[in-house]
Structure formats: structure tokens, C-alpha cells
């Protein structure tokens, strides 16, 4: 089978799976709702509980889960290929730590600003991620020969620990309710409660995905080494710059929307690679779709398993993702 046909078959299979999950997920939850009533336009909106549960509580959750999952999984694929490091995650380069620091500061000082229906915490965390991206980028490109992946990696890891220390400091200075909120934020939460934060994140994620769309062939060459890629006509520095910026932008937007939900960015790419091979023309779209479905399913578990209590989605992604990944590793070897 040629690559193109295989690509179409595999990617459409993943697309069908992701679409099925996204259609099914809003129909289940901790309460039973009647779908016919939810879509019944003749009942006034303020009296239609089923419609409100479907459109106000569940649909924004499923959408934000899909967006966050797709962004983190694809950013993971791109960064692993670009850094030629299978352990790279969207959180390796300090972006999520920057986002977390922004969120922590907003929570601790009780920052109260809002724009377009988005509250201060997502805004501050996105600003934090941009600061982190800028710092890492300028550190890594300060050398004359352009972006150095080694410096990028080291700068990212160092920035991560530095920001983590600042996060601990901010948390320690905050009072109990604030530090509890801060810790809770770090576990991830997709109950966004309205469409505005989703709409605010979409432009950045669309921009990042537009760059991802032209990257796969370059990523295939980059994984063989910078020299090989350069010999085949890849403008290595430019490609790396775009890969880093787009992956970081997607991560920053995703984290500000749902918090730093762990494991998606590392488990999903590897899982998909184990299933479909290593050609990024297939891996990147497949991981994007699978990441969306995986996150929506994890959030579904989080909101139903202990109802009326809610489990943080980050705990579910870790509990499901970790062992499943280990099992696949053992099975494959």
C-alpha cells in the first residue's frame, strides 16, 4: 500500500474514533438526561434542564477536553521529533511551568480582571506561558549559529525547575484557600462552565495547527539528524524555530484552558507510534485525533466515576495512561 493511501485509511479510522467519542461523551454523565428533551426547541431555555446540562455543562467540557488533548498530544509529537528525544513532553521546555506560575500569581494575589468572558486565571497563565516561550527562545537562539536543541532542552529544563521554585514560593506566601485552589489548578480541570475560554484559546491553537500541517515531512527528516535533514534541503534552523514556537503556543493555550494535564503529551504520541509506525505524516494527525478522544474519555471518567464528587482529570490521565503505556512497551518488546 502506498503511503498516501495508508495515510488516508489510518487517519480516517482515527477520525471516526475521535468523532464517535465526541458525539457519545456529551450524552453520558452523572445525571440521566433525555436527548429528545435537550434538543426540543419548544421548551423555553430557562426551563429546559436537560438542554442546559447538555449545552452548558457537558458540551463545553467535551470541546475543551478535545482541544486540550489534541494540542498536548500533537505538541508532544512535534517536540519529540524536533529534539530527537523520546522523553520530551509539551511540559519539558518550561512552557507549562510558565503558565502555572502565571496562574499561581493570579490566584495568590486574587487578580480580578476579565476580558471577553474569560477570567483572570486563564489569561494570566497564557501570559506566563508566553513569557516562558520568549525566555527559552532567546536563550537558545542567542548563539550565532541559530537555535540549538541542546541549549533549548537545558534552558527549558532549568526554567522548569526555576519556575517550580517560584511557584512553591508563591504558594507558600498565599493563604490556605488560595494554595488549595492553586494545587487544584495543577491537577487540571476541564469544567470550563462556558464557551468563552474555548473561543479565546481557539485562534492560538488554529495558528499552531496550521504550522503543524506543514511540518510532518520536515520532522521525518529531522529525526534522522540535523545533518541528514540539511543535506536533503531542510532549512534546519528555520524548521526548528517554527516547530518550537508552534508546539509551545499550542501547549500554552491548552494549559491555560485546562491546566497542566499530565501524561497526554507523552503517552499518546508513543501509543500512536506503537500502533501506526513512525512516519510523521500519519503519526501527527493520528496522535492529534487520539489525544482528543483520550482526554475526553479520561474526563468522562473523572466526572462520573465518583459522582457527585469530581476527580481531577490529571489523576485519571496518569492512572490510565501510565500502566497502559508500560503494558504496551512490555508487549512490544
Amino acid at each position: 500500500m502506498n503511503v498516501r493511501r495508508r495515510m488516508i485509511t489510518v487517519v480516517s479510522a482515527y477520525a471516526v474514533f475521535a468523532a464517535a467519542v465526541m458525539v457519545w461523551a456529551p450524552t453520558v454523565g452523572s445525571t440521566d438526561i433525555s436527548l429528545s428533551k435537550a434538543f426540543d426547541r419548544s421548551i423555553p431555555w430557562d426551563q429546559n434542564v436537560d438542554a442546559q446540562i447538555f449545552f452548558v455543562a457537558r458540551l463545553p467540557r467535551v470541546l475543551s477536553g478535545a482541544i486540550v488533548g489534541a494540542s498536548l498530544a500533537s505538541a508532544g509529537v512535534v517536540l519529540q521529533a524536533m529534539l530527537r528525544n523520546p522523553l520530551a513532553t509539551p511540559f519539558t521546555l518550561g512552557v507549562s511551568a510558565g503558565a502555572a506560575l502565571g496562574a499561581m500569581i493570579a490566584i495568590a494575589i486574587g487578580l480580578d480582571l476579565g476580558a471577553m468572558g474569560v477570567s483572570s486565571v486563564p489569561i494570566a497563565s497564557f501570559a506566563g506561558s508566553l513569557v516562558a516561550i520568549a525566555i527559552v527562545y532567546f536563550l537558545a537562539s542567542s548563539q550565532k549559529r541559530g537555535l540549538s536543541t541542546n541549549v533549548l532542552l537545558l534552558a527549558g529544563v532549568t526554567l522548569n525547575s526555576f519556575f517550580s521554585a517560584l511557584i512553591l514560593f508563591v504558594q507558600y506566601m498565599a493563604d490556605f484557600t488560595q494554595s488549595f485552589r492553586a494545587v487544584r489548578w495543577l491537577m487540571g480541570d476541564l469544567d470550563v462552565g462556558s464557551y468563552s475560554p474555548i473561543l479565546a484559546a481557539i485562534p492560538f491553537i488554529v495558528a499552531a495547527f496550521a504550522v503543524f500541517a506543514i511540518l510532518p515531512r520536515t520532522l521525518n527528516l529531522l529525526t534522522m539528524g540535523e545533518n541528514v535533514a540539511a543535506a536533503r534541503g531542510v532549512e534546519v534552523i528555520r524548521a526548528q524555530r517554527w516547530a518550537f514556537l508552534s508546539a509551545s503556543l499550542a501547549t500554552g493555550a491548552a494549559v491555560s484552558l485546562g491546566g497542566p494535564i499530565g501524561f497526554i503529551g507523552i503517552v499518546v504520541p508513543h501509543l500512536v507510534r506503537l500502533m501506526v509506525g513512525s512516519d510523521h505524516r500519519i503519526v501527527l494527525p493520528a496522535a492529534t485525533l487520539f489525544g482528543a478522544a483520550f482526554t475526553v474519555l479520561c474526563d468522562l471518567t473523572a466526572r462520573t466515576i465518583m459522582a457527585p464528587m469530581e476527580l481531577p482529570v490529571g489523576i485519571i490521565t496518569a492512572l490510565i495512561g501510565g500502566p497502559f503505556f508500560l503494558w504496551l512497551l512490555v508487549k512490544k518488546s
Binding site: G29, S30, T31, V49, Q52, I53, V56, A57, R58, R184, D191, G193, R303, A307, P308, M309, E310
Partner: peptide, 21 residues
Amino acid sequence: VFADADRESIQATTEHILARA
């Protein structure tokens, strides 16, 4: 409305608030 949960507090989702009216 959350008296059935034997805890001091819970994080309430929008779904639960809508359902418990």
C-alpha cells in the same frame, strides 16, 4: 442540596448544580 455526600465539602460541577436545581 449536597447533603447526601458524607464530606465537609465537594467541588460541584455545573452539571450537578443544574441537575440538583
